[in-house]
Design a binder for these strands. Structure first.
Lengths: 201, 201
DNA sequence: GAGTGGTCTAGACCACTAC
DNA sequence: TAGTGGTCTAGACCACTCG
């Protein structure tokens, strides 16, 4: 087993076990080389591999740092975006793009088990982590179930939607059905998320 | 501009301009180093970067080779899988998994503009490039439109489906509507294509 | 056995960042 | 000015593939 690979695995384990917090600076290449009694290039090879893996980042003149943990969604627990990001050590924020009442939109109404002609509240929010756009959310609420929702004048940029529903309407979430959809980004979505429109091959 | 980067760009250009065919062997690291009058490690750095880009591949004891061109689908022209692969210098082959007549399958019938109770020929084929599974195709043909299709006993592992329809039924393809779908692989599809079932995070 | 890529060493200079 | 990562050199031994 190559030296650089052993070193790579060792450092990775240290990071994953939490010996370094996200953003922490590692010892310099030269220091590590001296500590482990190997050549600097060998250390470098290990560090480079971890940079490629996304475990570390490095900046010339500054040092090598533990990268923020990758974004993963467990698909098992029902957590709010805000909780999620906090757990990852990222600063979550929200931009409310629109908050409106719309009349019948058939498909959504069917999904919510409503009649054909009911009104719904549509909330469009852009979710950010450390000010980088992460997700574009659209929430649909039946007006009938949440009377006076708009009059509450809750600022959904700061208040949790889950919390608001619980506080004002006594809603407790027991189950949730999450839907994942992989599709091509529309122009608007791409602009919001800062990604590329369409298919990448 | 770093030496290794200049070298990397130079080699990449040579490959892209067709000075090397796909599969060709490049000069060895030591040879290149001598030719360009730089250290072997510098050459190595350039080659490694190109391997990461997918331009080259390398095998210990053998040498460095031009990688097969990346698979891209233009989404513009109507070409058969066989033509596609030939153009890429890959050896296309086909394995016919099943060839059957099935009765009403509603959704497909609707797509083909058929009545509710018509029979269809279902052809399932696994497409390979250089013996590596590339695609899983299911073709549906209305029996009414192609009478005696099964009696033709055409071996679709070797004959083009497009050609067969043209030859025996005088069909000329003018337009096609291609549907791309991104979704999670089923167990069966995953086995056929040699990929992982389900979502990867 | 000859040639290939894979690993490793000991040393050097550079560009960049902080203090 | 001191320390960092980024680049480069000249050499060495290894594991692997081929004829």
């Amino acid at each position: 087993m190559p030296l650089y690979y052993q070193l790579q695995a060792k450092i990775k384990r240290l990071v994953e076990e939490g010996h370094f917090a996200h953003g922490d600076r590692l010892p310099s290449e030269r220091q590590i080389a001296e500590m482990v009694m190997v050549n600097r290039l060998t250390v470098r090879q290990a560090l480079m591999a971890l940079v490629n893996e996304g475990v570390l980042t490095r900046k010339r003149g500054l040092g090598t740092f533990v990268a923020p943990p990758k974004l993963e969604h467990g698909l098992t627990k029902l957590t709010s975006f805000t909780e999620d990001m906090h757990k990852r050590g990222l600063k979550p924020s929200t931009r409310v793009l629109s908050l409106s009442v719309q009349s019948v939109e058939k498909k959504v109404n069917l999904l919510l088990g409503l009649g054909a002609h009911e009104d719904i509240i549509v909330i469009e929010r852009l979710r950010l982590a450390d000010d980088k756009p992460m997700a574009f959310e659209v929430a649909h609420l039946p007006c009938r179930r949440f009377p006076g929702f708009l009059d509450l004048r809750v600022d959904l940029a700061y208040a949790s939607l889950y919390d608001t529903l619980r506080l004002h309407y006594g809603i407790e979430f027991a189950r949730a059905s999450e839907t994942l959809e992989a599709r091509v980004a529309s122009v608007r979505e791409a602009e919001l998320l800062g990604i590329q429109v369409g298919l990448r091959f």
